[in-house]
Design a protein around this nucleic acid. Structure first.
Lengths: 155, 155
DNA sequence: CACCTAAGTTTAGTTTCTGGACGCACCATC
DNA sequence: GATGGTGCGTCCAGAAACTAAACTTAGGTG
């Protein structure tokens, strides 16, 4: 399978991975959630080639994850902001952060703390069931084909 | 920045992405959570080169996400199973699935349904606060440097 | 013996990523 | 009005990653 074919798979993971599933896109999204908006800032913080930044930002804009908006005229300069679709990626980013905190934090602890404004506490994200609101673990879930599955395909 | 430098960043996203953040690793994990355990099965389902399967499985084993265990002798054959560290990635995978379901499901609906055995319902994953147990949205969170941050680094 | 499976390894060709230079439109300073 | 700085790119040659397809190893089947 080629990478470009991922988007056509009857699998939500594949379709998502086609958009966000490469090394640098995830890092760009991390920075976007930390408030980074400008090309130069992304490039400086990541230290990767400008070509890749250009290409990844374009993909994210094309997919509607980021929106390009002018922040000045003469010369026109644009910044990249998370759209609602982009903000919907927050659970993905937080889940990744949490896994890193669990398994790769040094003895010093987590590099970043996240405070939930509503309750004022530093928190960890917990995945819960939308129906019964209890935390969900992998072994408590049964997966089966849904309405959008191609026949015979189980992915 | 080089790809291999990601693991040394004082950022849990970077350290996680160094392990799971490429196109095919995420697809391999998807299949692992669906019960795939053997080399040939991963290769057939993904349709990518055997070289990459070999390399990615090795990385995941080295990182302790998968464990290689013999399932027969003569000839010795191994299978790859998720470790606890691997199972801890379930929220990441589910968050990605959910985002795909939200934004890329066709009119037919989600390709896969997930039933929570505890309550018997098909569910969506909801990210909640570990302290107050309320759902958390991106805008309700304040991020700041934690104990594991390098001085002056805000990522 | 020829053929099959599972799990890789090797090889050669293609694609992607990289750093670094360059372009362009404006602004500020000398 | 020449020089330098900023913001956001593009272009290029070389390096790295990925690909398909053939080959290997260790055994099983007819």
């Amino acid at each position: 399978m080629k990478w470009e074919d991922l988007a056509d798979q009857p699998c939500s993971i594949a379709r998502s991975v086609a958009v966000i599933g490469d090394r640098w896109t995830l890092m760009i999204l991390r920075d976007a959630f930390l408030g980074v908006r400008r090309f130069e800032a992304f490039q400086t913080r990541l230290g990767i080639s400008r070509t890749i930044i250009t290409e990844r930002l374009k993909l994210l804009v094309d997919e509607g994850v980021l929106a390009k908006a002018p922040y000045q005229d003469r010369p026109v300069r644009h910044e990249y902001r998370l759209t609602q679709k982009g903000l919907d990626l927050y659970p993905v980013v937080m889940a990744i952060v949490h896994w890193g905190d669990q398994h790769y934090a040094g003895q010093a602890g987590a590099p970043l703390l996240h405070r939930h404004k509503a309750c004022g506490c530093d928190f960890a994200p917990v995945m819960t069931c939308s129906e019964c609101h209890a935390p969900v673990a992998a072994r408590e879930v049964e997966t089966r084909a849904g309405p959008g599955a191609a026949q015979g395909v189980t992915s």
